[in-house]
Write a protein that binds this DNA or RNA. Structure first.
Length: 940
RNA sequence: GGGCCUGUAGCUCAGUCGGUUAGAGCACACCUCUGAUAAGGGUGGGGUCCGUGGUUCGAAUCCACGCAGGCCCA
C-alpha cells in the first residue's frame, strides 16, 4: 500500500516561482478593470481621512529610480493607513509649465514669435506635456501605486491656472508681491532670469585680477589716517569678473576689520591688515620683516572716502558692508550693485545707482567709451585688462579655476544682472518670521529636516517669481506706467482668473487691458492713470507651491493642511519651501502637518547615478527582470533617510528574501486547502499549546509591525516579516508542525488546531506585506478561501486573540526552543560523522535534573515531535553516562542511531512497526490515525 | 568655500545612559532531507565599528581634526 496517499499533504495552485514580470500586469489589469481605487474610496466614505499630498513630478521624460522611490514610499504609507481603517484619497499630480518643456518644443518649432506665434507655441507645449504624462502615468501605475490616476491634478488645467492666478492676486493685494530691480542669475541663451533651482555649478577658468582704485583726494586720506603728508595711495580690489568693472559704483570694506597702508612696488596701497602678507606674496614681494606699514585704521574710518574709477570718468565711494570677508582677496570688495546680490544690498543703503551697461544679449552697450561698446563678456574681459595696464592700475593678473554658476539647460555661464523682476518679499507682513514659526509647528521626519529648512528660510533672499518666457501662468497684473507699482485690486484679479478659467492663459495675452481694468483706475502710489500689462510668466515653483490651494482646498475628497508631504531632501529648497511660503503668505500657516524626506539613490559604491559614469539603473529594467514587488521591497528595506544604494547584488539579495516570504505563504496555503475557518476553526482555548504560543507571537508581532508602519519604519516591517517567515516559521513552527499536519486525521483536533493558527497567520501576514509587496499580497489573497473582500486592500488588520497565558507560554516555549537548538547542535555532530541523516534516524536519552524533569515530563511522547527525533526518553540527571553531552546546565544528552524500522507512513523509526497485522509497514500511532480515533495531541 | 546628513561583516540593517567576547537576517562554506523540491532543515566561518588624536578605569558610542560619499547653497 502507498501510505503517502493517506497523508494530508499540502495542495495549492499558488506557484512557487513568482514570475512577477509576467504575473504582475495581470493583477494590475484586474485592479484597473474593477477600479480598485474608486471602490475602496466608496467603501471608506465615512472613515477618518489620511491625506498624503502628492508633489508633482515634472512632466518631461521617463520616470527614473528616484521617482520610483518617491512614489513607492508614498504608496506604502497610503496602504498602511488603509489597513488601519482610514479613508485615504490620493491624487497624483504633474508639474506642467516651465523651461524644460519649452526647450523640447523649441527644438521642434523654434522660439515663440519666430516661426510660430506665442499662442501656437503654448498649445504645442500643452500637447507635449500631455504626451509625457501619458507615459509617466503608465509607469507609475505599473509600480502598483494606488491612486486616482483617472483624475490627476495638472498645473496646466485651466482651473488650476486660474487658481494659481488667484493666489498671485491675494499676495499682490496683500502687498507681498513687489517690483524690484535686483541682480538675478541671467542666462543669455534663455534671455531670462533663472530660478535658483535652474542654476548648476561647473568649473570654469577666469582671469583673476587685482585692481588699484586711486584715492581721489589724498588730503582726505591724510586726515583720516593722521599721516604726516598727503600721499598718492590706492585701494586694492580683487575680482574674477573684470567685465563688471564698468558697473562699479563703490568699494566695500568691513567696518570692524583693520586696514593698513603700505608700500608695494612703486605705489602705496590700502588693504585689510590680515591679508597684506598673502597679497604681497601674490605680487611676488616678500620681506623677512613683513610688510612696512605706514598707517593703520578700521574700515569704518575710511567710509565715504572717494576713489577714482580706474578707467572710466567716474568717482566712487568706499562703503561699509558686513558681507566683506578675509577669506580671499584684499578685504576691499569691488561693488557693482547691478551684478551681485550682496553688492546690491550693501549699496541700497547708500542709494547708489543700480546701473549696468550690460544688455539682454550679453553685450556691453554700444555707447560705452574706450572701445568697450558692443563687446561680449570675454572680449570685455580682455579689453578691460588692457585698459588697466594702460592706466597702470593692474597690480596682478592670473588665471583661476573655480566653480561658477551655469544654466542647467544650456550649460553656459550665467551672469549676475539687475533686471526688473517681480518678487515675493520675505519681509512684507513678516513672511520670514511667520514661515519660521510655521516650520516649528510642523513635524519633520527625520527631525533634522527642521533645522535644514529653517536655515534656508533664515538666509534666503526675496523670492523672484518672474520669468521672461512663454510657457506658464502669466504674472497677470497691471503696474503703473509711471512708478511701477502693481495695481492691488482684488476684483481685477478675479476678472482675469475667470477669463483664464474659461479660456486658458491666452485670455490674458490676447484680450485688451480694458476687459479687466476697472474704469478710472489710478495708481495708489502716485495717482497716475496709465498701466502696463505684465508679460512675464510665473516661476513654476509658484505653480507647484500653490497646489495646496488648487488641489487640497478644491477637491471635495481632500482638505488642507495635508497630513503629510513626502519628497526627496532636495525639496527643502524646492517644493516644501515654495508651498510653505505661498501658504504662509496667503493663509498664515503651513499647508502640511508633517513633512517626510528621503535621500537620493546611489550605486553600490555610494556614488550618485549619472549618465556619464554609466551607473544609472532604470526602474523599468528591474521591473522587467524581477518585478515591481522586488523594487518595492528594495524601497522598504533601505534606510531612506540617507542615501539609498542599489546594485545588482542588492536586488538579487532581495529576490532571495522575497522567495522566502512567498514560499512561506505558499506552504500555509497548501496546508489549509481543506480548511474553512468559519466551520473548522477552533476557539483559542482548545488550541494545542504550541499553536497558542505561535498565535501569541503572531499577535505581538502584528502590534510591532503596525507600530513600525505608524513610525514610517518600513525597514523594520520588512525585517520582522522576513525574520518571522524564516526563523519562527520555517526554522521552528512549520518544521515541527509537518508531522501533525500530514499524519493526523484530516479533521482531527490536532490538525484543525494547527490550521486555525496558520490561517490567522496568513490573514495577518497578507496584511503586513500588502503595503510593500502589493502584487504578491493580492495574489495570495486571491488564493485564499472564502475571502471576505474582492481585494486585500479593502481589509483592515485581523483581530488576533492574545491568549490569556501568553507570558507563561512564551517562557515555556522559549525554554523548550533553547533546548531544541542544543539538541540540533548535538545531532549535527552525528550527521557530520555520517551516523545519521535525518533527525528521525536518532533516538535521544535525556538526563535531566529535577527541575528540568518536572518541566519536560508532562510533554510525554510529544517531546520527540518537538525535537523531531524518533524517540526521546527522560532519565535522572544523576544517571548520565560519561560520554553524554551537557546541553544546558542540568540537562545531558546521549544520542543513538535508531535500530527500529522506519514507519512507511510517518517515517519515524519505531519498534512497534509491523505489530499490526493489517498494516505491517507502519507504526502504532499511524494505525490509530488511519483507523481512528487517532492519536491525541496536547502540546505540539 | 558654507549649511544639513551618512560611514558597523560580502549585502541590507540593529547596537539603549559610555560597561562582559559588537549582534540579526541574507549571501557564503559544509552537512542533511527528498512528503514545501528551481523548495525545506542543521552547523559553521566571517569585523581596522572610515582614519588619526583626545576625554575616560573603560569608546562603535562623547570631543576635535581629517578622509570618503550624498543633498542644498555660494
Amino acid at each position: 500500500m502507498d501510505y503517502k496517499l493517506t497523508l494530508n499533504l499540502p495542495q495549492t495552485d499558488f506557484p512557487m516561482q513568482g514570475k512577477l514580470p509576467e504575473r504582475e500586469p495581470a493583477t494590475l489589469a484586474r485592479w484597473q478593470e474593477h477600479d480598485l481605487y474608486a471602490a475602496i474610496q466608496a467603501a471608506r466614505s465615512n472613515a477618518p481621512t489620511f491625506i498624503l499630498h502628492d508633489g508633482p513630478p515634472y512632466a518631461n521624460g521617463k520616470i527614473h529610480i528616484g521617482h520610483a522611490v518617491n512614489k513607492i514610499l508614498k504608496d506604502i504609507i497610503n496602504k498602511s493607513k488603509l489597513s488601519e481603517g482610514y479613508r485615504v484619497p490620493y491624487v497624483p499630480g504633474w508639474d506642467c509649465h516651465g523651461l524644460p518643456i519649452e526647450i523640447q518644443v523649441e527644438k521642434e518649432l523654434g522660439r515663440p514669435g519666430e516661426k510660430v506665434s506665442a499662442q501656437e507655441f503654448r498649445n504645442a507645449c500643452r500637447t507635449y506635456a500631455e504626451s509625457q504624462i501619458v507615459g509617466q502615468k503608465q509607469d507609475f501605475e505599473r509600480l502598483g501605486i494606488l491612486g486616482d490616476w483617472q483624475h490627476p491634478y495638472l498645473t496646466m488645467h485651466f482651473a488650476a491656472e486660474a487658481n494659481i492666478l488667484r493666489e498671485l492676486g491675494r499676495l499682490t493685494v496683500n502687498g507681498q508681491v513687489v517690483r524690484g530691480a535686483k541682480p538675478v542669475h541671467w542666462c543669455v541663451d534663455c534671455g531670462s532670469a533663472l530660478a535658483e533651482a535652474e542654476v548648476e555649478y561647473q568649473d570654469r577658468t577666469d582671469p583673476s585680477i587685482d585692481v588699484a582704485f586711486a584715492v581721489a583726494d589724498p588730503a582726505d586720506l591724510q586726515q583720516r589716517l593722521g599721516l604726516k603728508e598727503a600721499i598718492a595711495a590706492s585701494v586694492v580690489i580683487w575680482t574674477t569678473t573684470p567685465w563688471t568693472l564698468p558697473a562699479n559704483q563703490a568699494v566695500a570694506v568691513h567696518p570692524d576689520y583693520a586696514y593698513v597702508l603700505l608700500r608695494s612696488g612703486h605705489r602705496h596701497i590700502l588693504l585689510a591688515a590680515d591679508l597684506a602678507e598673502s597679497t604681497l606674496a601674490r605680487y611676488g614681494e616678500t620681506s623677512e620683516n613683513g610688510p612696512a606699514i605706514l598707517a593703520e585704521c578700521s574700515g569704518s574710518q575710511i567710509e565715504g572716502l572717494i576713489l577714482q574709477h580706474p578707467f572710466l570718468d567716474r568717482q566712487v565711494p568706499i562703503i561699509l558692508g558686513q558681507h566683506v570677508t578675509l577669506e580671499a582677496g584684499t578685504g576691499c570688495v569691488h561693488t557693482a550693485p547691478a551684478h551681485g546680490v550682496e553688492d546690491y544690498e550693501a549699496s541700497r543703503h547708500y542709494h547708489l545707482p543700480v546701473e549696468s551697461p550690460l544688455q539682454d544679449n550679453g553685450r556691453l552697450r554700444d555707447d560705452l567709451p574706450r572701445g568697450l561698446g558692443g563687446l561680449n563678456i570675454r572680449q570685455a574681459n580682455e579689453k578691460i585688462i588692457e585698459l588697466l595696464q594702460e592706466e597702470d592700475a593692474l597690480l596682478h593678473l592670473e588665471k583661476i579655476r573655480h566653480s561658477y554658476p551655469h544654466c542647467w539647460r544650456h550649460k553656459t555661464p550665467l551672469l549676475f544682472r539687475a533686471t526688473p523682476q517681480w518678487f515675493i518679499s520675505m519681509s512684507a507682513n513678516q513672511l520670514r518670521d511667520k514661515a519660521l514659526s510655521a516650520i516649528e509647528a510642523t513635524r519633520w521626519i527625520p527631525d533634522w529636516g527642521q533645522e535644514r529648512i529653517a536655515g534656508m528660510i533664515r538666509q534666503r533672499p526675496d523670492w523672484c517669481i518672474s520669468r521672461q518666457r512663454a510657457w506658464g501662468v502669466p504674472i497677470a497684473l497691471f503696474f503703473c506706467a509711471q512708478c511701477g507699482e502693481p495695481l492691488r485690486d482684488a476684483a481685477t484679479f478675479e476678472r482675469i482668473a475667470q477669463a483664464v478659467e474659461a479660456n486658458g492663459v491666452d485670455a490674458w495675452f490676447n484680450q485688451p487691458a480694458e476687459d479687466f481694468l476697472p474704469a478710472g483706475a489710478h495708481c495708489a502710489a502716485c495717482g497716475h492713470d496709465h498701466f502696463h500689462k505684465s508679460t512675464d510668466i510665473l516661476d513654476v515653483w509658484f505653480d507647484s507651491g500653490s497646489t495646496h490651494a488648487f488641489v487640497l482646498e478644491q477637491r471635495p475628497e481632500l482638505h488642507s493642511p495635508a497630513d503629510l508631504y513626502l519628497e526627496g531632501s532636495d525639496q527643502h529648497r524646492g517644493w516644501f519651501q515654495s508651498s510653505l511660503l505661498e501658504s504662509v503668505a496667503s493663509r498664515g500657516r503651513a499647508p502640511f502637518k508633517a513633512v517626510l524626506t528621503h535621500g537620493f539613490t546611489v550605486d553600490g559604491e555610494g556614488r550618485k547615478m549619472s549618465k556619464s559614469v554609466g551607473n544609472v539603473i532604470a526602474p523599468q529594467s528591474i521591473i522587467d527582470r524581477y518585478g515591481a514587488d522586488i523594487l518595492r521591497l528594495w524601497v522598504a528595506s533601505a534606510d531612506y533617510r540617507g542615501e539609498i544604494p542599489i546594485s545588482d547584488a542588492i536586488v538579487k539579495q532581495l529576490g532571495d528574501s522575497y522567495r522566502r516570504i512567498r514560499n512561506t505563504a505558499r506552504y500555509i496555503l497548501g496546508n489549509t486547502h481543506d480548511f474553512d475557518f468559519a466551520k473548522d476553526a477552533l476557539p483559542a482555548a482548545e488550541l494545542l499549546e504550541m499553536d497558542r504560543w505561535m498565535l501569541a507571537r503572531t499577535a505581538l508581532l502584528q502590534e510591532e509591525i503596525r507600530a513600525a508602519y505608524a513610525e514610517y519604519q518600513f525597514l523594520k516591517v520588512q525585517q520582522k516579516l522576513h525574520h518571522f517567515c524564516s526563523i519562527d516559521l520555517g526554522g521552528l513552527y512549520l518544521d515541527v508542525l509537518k508531522d501533525r499536519l500530514y499524519t493526523s486525521p484530516a479533521a482531527s483536533r490536532a490538525r484543525r488546531s494547527a490550521q486555525t493558527v496558520l490561517w490567522l497567520m496568513l490573514e495577518a501576514m497578507v496584511r503586513w506585506m500588502a503595503p510593500v509587496l502589493s502584487f504578491t499580497a493580492e495574489e495570495i489573497w486571491q488564493e485564499m478561501r472564502d475571502r471576505p473582500a474582492p481585494s486585500v486592500f479593502f481589509g483592515e488588520y485581523p483581530d488576533i486573540p492574545l491568549p490569556a497565558d501568553t507570558l507563561a507560554l512564551n517562557a515555556r516555549w522559549e525554554r523548550l526552543s533553547q533546548l531544541r537548538d542544543a539538541v540540533n547542535a548535538a545531532l549535527e555532530l552525528l550527521r557530520q560523522d555520517k551516523k545519521i541523516g535525518s533527525g528521525l534516524d536518532a533516538e535521544l536519552q535525556i538526563y535531566a535534573n529535577d527541575d528540568w524533569q518536572a518541566f519536560l515530563q508532562p510533554l510525554g511522547e510529544e517531546l520527540r515531535y518537538f525535537l523531531m527525533t524518533s524517540a526521546c526518553s527522560i532519565h535522572a540527571y544523576s544517571g548520565r553516562p560519561e560520554n553524554s553531552a551537557e546541553l544546558v546546565p542540568g540537562v545531558a544528552l546521549q544520542v543513538q542511531t535508531s535500530t527500529a524500522s522506519k514507519c512507511a507512513r510517518c517515517w519515524h523509526r519505531r519498534h512497534d512497526v509491523g505489530q499490526h497485522a493489517g498494516h505491517p509497514e507502519i507504526c502504532g500511532r499511524c494505525v490509530s490515525n488511519l483507523e481512528l480515533p487517532g492519536e491525541q495531541r496536547e502540546f505540539c
